[in-house]
Write a protein that binds this DNA or RNA. Structure first.
Lengths: 150, 150
DNA sequence: AGATAAATTGCATAATATTCAATTATTTAT
DNA sequence: ATAAATAATTGAATATTATGCAATTTATCT
C-alpha cells in the first residue's frame, strides 16, 4: 500500500486546488465564461494567492495548536523579517506576523502534541535574538482560516 | 458592469474550490484514479473540511489585521463557546480559539482599516461577559494559512 | 492458509474548464 | 459631446479533467 495521505496533505496545505467555475456560475446565475474571466483576472493581479485545503487538524496529527508571542532583543528590532522568514520554512507554523504591542512577533503553530511543540520551541523558535516566549495554548478551535469548525 | 469580485471573494473564503487531481497525479507519478480514490476517502472521513482560496488581504480591503486577546468574566467561564459561536458569524474574524494562559479567547481579525476594526470592537467583541480586550496589531504578515506571503 | 475487505488501476464516459470570436459596456482623449 | 480605445461579457466549440465501473492486486482477519 502506498502512503499517499501525507503527501496529499503536504500538497494541499499550500495549493494543488482550483476554483469550481461551473458551480459558482450556477450559484451566481452568471455564464461560466464570465466567472472564468473574472477569476483569471484576480489570479493575474495576485489578488488570489492560491487555492488550498482546510483540514480537521486533529485528524492529521496536528491537534496541538498554540499562539506564540515572541519578544526580540533590541538588536533584532531592525530586521525581524530575517528571523520570520527562517521560521516560515517550518510546516508546523501556520502563520507569522510582525507586531506592535506586547510582543514583536506572533506565531500560530500546529504540532502533533506537546512534545513535538516543545522540540519546536527548543530547536527552532528559541534562538539568538529571541529573548522571551509566551505560549497561549488553544483548548478548542471554533473557527480557523475563515472556516467554522464543528 | 457586474460587481462579481466581492461575491467571488465571499464564496472563496469558505469553499467553492476543488482538488486538481490530474496535476497531483502527474506530480506524484500515480494514476489519477488512485489519487481520486484517496482524496474522496479523506473527504468522507472529514479529514478535509473544505477547499478555499487564500488572498492578498491588502488587495481585498482587509489590510488591517489584529490578534485580539480576550478575558471573560468568571460567570462566562462555563461556556465560552456560546460567545465564540456568535462571533464566528462575522466574516472579518478569521479564527477563534478558546485558550489557556493570559486569556480565555484569542481572535484573528481582518478589517479594512483601523476604523472598521474599532467598530467591530465596539459593536461585536465588547459584550456582556467580556471584561478585558488586548489588541496586538500585525505590522507585516510573513505567512498566513500555511502560505508564505511574498 | 483461506476468506473477506480494502486499495489500486485502466478504460470509458460524463462533467468541466478553457479558447476563441463576437458583442456590449466603460473609459479616455480630442 | 463624440469618437477611439480598452475592458468586460457572452455563446459556441474544443480540450482537459474528474468520475464511475469492473478487474486486479494487496492487505487484514480468523
Amino acid at each position: 500500500m502506498k502512503d499517499i495521505k501525507p503527501k496529499l496533505i503536504g500538497l494541499f496545505k499550500e495549493g494543488y486546488c482550483t476554483p469550481q467555475i461551473a458551480r459558482i456560475a450556477k450559484r451566481m446565475k452568471e455564464p461560466a465564461t464570465t466567472i472564468h474571466y473574472n477569476i483569471k483576472r484576480m489570479e493575474e493581479e495576485n489578488v488570489i494567492r492560491t487555492y488550498k485545503a482546510v483540514f480537521d487538524y486533529k485528524k492529521i496529527n496536528e491537534g496541538f495548536c498554540t499562539f506564540v508571542l515572541i519578544n526580540l532583543s533590541p538588536d533584532e528590532y531592525g530586521n525581524p523579517e530575517k528571523i520570520a522568514k527562517e521560521l516560515a520554512k517550518y510546516p508546523q507554523i501556520e502563520s507569522i506576523d510582525i507586531c506592535t504591542g506586547d510582543c514583536e512577533m506572533i506565531l500560530k503553530v500546529r504540532a502533533k502534541d506537546q512534545e513535538e511543540y516543545y522540540n519546536l520551541i527548543k530547536n527552532v523558535i528559541s534562538r539568538r535574538g529571541v529573548i522571551k516566549i509566551k505560549t497561549l495554548t488553544s483548548l478548542k478551535q471554533i473557527k480557523t482560516e475563515f472556516v467554522e469548525t464543528e
